[in-house]
C-alpha cells in the first residue's frame, strides 16, 4: 500500500509552496514585453526598495495569519512609530539611534495592546486592530498636528539609502536577514512549531499544554516590532516622517502574505513566500504605472487582487476539509 514518493512529493511541495516565484517571473516577463523600461536597473532597484518596507511588515502579518489572526493597524503603526522616532530625534534632540529604538518600542507597545485586547478581553482581532488603526493615526496627528518632520539626522541615512558593497541597498539586506531569521525561527524552534499548531487548531494546542494566549499576544508584539523596523527604514529613505507614511501597508502586507500562500484560516504558509508575494504586487503596480494605467484603476486592482487571493485560499481550504 505504501508508495515511495519522497522525491516526487518534495518537488511537488516546493512548486506548491513557492508557486508565487513562478508567477513573479511570468509577470516580469510579461511587463517587460509590454515596456522594456521595466528591466532598467533603476526601476528594479526601486521595486526592491519598495518591497523591503512592505515585506518587513508582511513578516508580522504572515505570522499573525499563521496563528489565525490579523492586524489592520500595522500601516498606521508604521506611521506613528516613524513619527515618534522623528519627534524624539528632531524636536527633543535625543540621539538618533536611541530615537529609532524608542519608535520600535512604541510599535511593540501598540502590538501588545492589540494582543491584550484580543486575547484577554476577547475582542475579535479584526475589530481590535481596526480601532487601533484610528488610534494610531490620531496619535500621529496629535504629535505634530499633521506637519511633516524633515529633514532627519544624517546618521540614520544609511538604513534607507545606504548600500552594501556599493551595490545592494542596506534595507534589502535587512529584509532578507529578517526573513531568514524568521523562517529559521518558524522551522527550527519550538516557538515556530507552536505558532503553526496554534493556527491549525487552537483548542488542540491548548490540550497539548501550550500557552495559547501568551503566544498569541507575543505574535502581535512581534508584528509590532516589524512595523517599527519598517518605519525606521521608511523615514530614513524618505528623510522625513510624514502622515502618509505606511498608509495601506497592512493591506499590501496581507496581499503579499496571502499571494505567497499564507492561509487566512491559519496554520499554513511559508515565510519566504510572503516576501515574493509582496514583490509580486509591488512589481505589478510598478508595471501598471509604467504603462500609464489610471491610478484609480490601480486601486480597484489592488482590492481585487486581495479578494482574489483570499478567494483562492478560501476555496483551497474548503476543499481540503
Amino acid at each position: 500500500m505504501k508508495i515511495d514518493t519522497k522525491i516526487g512529493s518534495k518537488v511537488k511541495s516546493f512548486t506548491r509552496d513557492y508557486s508565487i516565484v513562478l508567477a513573479l517571473i511570468v509577470l516580469m516577463i510579461a511587463i517587460t514585453m509590454a515596456d522594456s523600461r521595466f528591466l532598467r536597473v533603476s526601476n528594479l532597484m526601486n521595486i526592491l526598495l519598495q518591497t523591503s518596507t512592505v515585506a518587513i511588515v508582511a513578516l508580522g502579518q504572515a505570522l499573525l495569519l499563521i496563528t489565525g489572526q490579523l492586524d489592520l493597524s500595522l500601516g498606521q503603526n508604521v506611521c506613528l512609530s516613524g513619527f515618534i522616532s522623528a519627534y524624539f530625534m528632531e524636536m527633543l534632540e535625543l540621539g538618533p539611534w536611541l530615537s529609532l529604538v524608542i519608535g520600535i518600542l512604541v510599535a511593540m507597545l501598540v502590538g501588545l495592546i492589540n494582543g491584550l485586547l484580543t486575547t484577554i478581553i476577547g475582542i475579535p482581532p479584526f475589530i481590535t486592530t481596526l480601532g487601533m488603526q484610528l488610534v494610531c493615526q490620531g496619535c500621529a496627528k496629535l504629535i505634530t498636528s499633521t506637519k511633516t518632520i524633515a529633514p532627519l539626522d544624517k546618521s540614520i541615512k544609511v538604513i534607507g539609502r545606504g548600500f552594501v558593497f556599493d551595490t545592494i541597498p542596506v534595507s534589502v539586506v535587512l529584509m532578507i536577514v529578517l526573513y531568514a531569521l524568521m523562517a529559521f525561527m518558524m522551522k527550527r524552534t519550538r516557538m515556530g512549531r507552536y505558532y503553526y499548531e496554534i493556527g491549525g487548531n487552537p483548542e488542540a494546542a491548548y490540550f497539548a499544554g501550550i500557552n495559547v494566549k501568551l503566544y498569541r499576544i507575543l505574535a502581535f508584539v512581534i508584528a509590532g516590532f516589524f512595523a517599527g523596523v519598517s518605519a525606521c527604514v521608511l523615514i530614513s529613505r524618505l528623510d522625513s516622517a510624514n502622515i502618509a507614511n505606511g498608509t495601506g501597508y497592512e493591506f499590501e502586507a496581507m496581499i503579499g502574505a496571502v499571494l505567497g500562500g499564507v492561509s487566512q484560516s491559519g496554520g499554513k504558509g511559508k515565510i519566504f513566500a510572503a516576501m515574493f508575494g509582496v514583490m509580486f504586487s509591488v512589481a505589478l503596480f510598478n508595471g501598471m504605472t509604467l504603462l500609464n494605467v489610471n491610478p484609480f484603476v490601480q486601486d480597484v486592482f489592488k482590492g481585487g487582487i486581495l479578494l482574489f487571493a483570499m478567494g483562492v485560499d478560501a476555496i483551497r481550504t474548503k476543499q481540503a476539509v
Binding site: Y196, E197, N201, F207, A320
Partner: peptide, 28 residues
C-alpha cells in the same frame, strides 16, 4: 476538536506535546 490539528502532519501532531524531547541547544 481537542486532539488533533487536522491540517498538520502526523509527525507534527505526535510530537507536539513532548516537543522538548527533540530540542537540542534550543532548536528542533
Amino acid at each position: 476538536r481537542f486532539g488533533l490539528s487536522l491540517q498538520s502532519t502526523v509527525k507534527n501532531n505526535i510530537t507536539l506535546t513532548a516537543i522538548d524531547k527533540v530540542l537540542e541547544w534550543g532548536l528542533l
